[in-house]
Computed example of a mutant assay.
Amino acid sequence: MAIDGPLRLLLFNLVTDADHQVLGFTTNWINALAPHCAYIDVLTMQAGRLDVADNVRVFSVGREKGYSEPRRVLEFYRLLRRLLDERYYDACFAHMMPLFAVMGAPLLAPKHIPITTWYTHRQRSMTLRLATMVSHRVISAVPSSFPLKTDKLRALGHGIDAVLYAPPSQVHDQPPRVIQVARLTPIKNQDVLLRAAAPLDCEVVLVGDTAEGYSTDYREELKTLTRELGMADRVTFTGQQTPQQVRDWYQRSTVAVNLSPPGLFDKAALEAMACGLPTLVSNEAFASLTGPQHKLLHINAPDDVEGLREHLRTLLALTPLQRQQIGQHLRMGVVAEHSLEPLARKVISVLRTGEVASEGTSEVFSEMASK
Rank of each mutant, 00 (worst) to 15 (best):
V235W: 04
T279V: 08
K267P: 03
A317E: 06
L312T: 00
D233G: 10
Q293S: 12
Q251L: 10
F265M: 06
V257F: 04
D303R: 10
S339F: 02
E306V: 13
P262V: 06
V257S: 02
V235T: 05
R345A: 05
L318P: 00
D248A: 15
D266R: 08
L297I: 02
P278I: 11
W249R: 03
S339I: 06
T279M: 03
H294F: 07
R252S: 10
S339D: 12
A269Q: 02
S282F: 06
D304L: 04
F286S: 02
S253I: 04
A336V: 07
H329V: 14
V246S: 00
Q241M: 07
H298W: 00
E341H: 06
H311G: 14
Q325N: 07
R234Y: 08
E284L: 12
M332D: 09
H311K: 15
T279R: 10
Q240R: 12
V305N: 01
A274T: 10
A269S: 07
L340A: 10
G239M: 10
Q241C: 15
P262S: 07
M231K: 06
Q325K: 13
L264R: 09
V257K: 01
E284Y: 08
G327P: 01
A268Y: 00
L330N: 07
R247V: 04
A232R: 11
L264M: 11
N283I: 00
G291Y: 12
R331G: 10
A301E: 02
E284Q: 13
E284M: 06
Q251F: 12
A232P: 06
Y250C: 13
L308T: 01
V334E: 03
L277G: 09
I299R: 00
T319V: 15
A336G: 13
V257D: 01
A274Q: 12
P342Q: 13
G239F: 13
G230A: 14
D303T: 15
L340M: 15
D266E: 14
L264Q: 13
H329P: 00
L264H: 15
T279Y: 12
G327K: 01
R247S: 05
A269N: 03
A317N: 08
C275P: 04
Q244H: 11
F286K: 01
Q328L: 08
Y250V: 01
C275W: 03
E271G: 07
P243Q: 14
V281I: 13
T279N: 03
D304W: 00
T314E: 12
V235H: 06
T238P: 10
G327V: 08
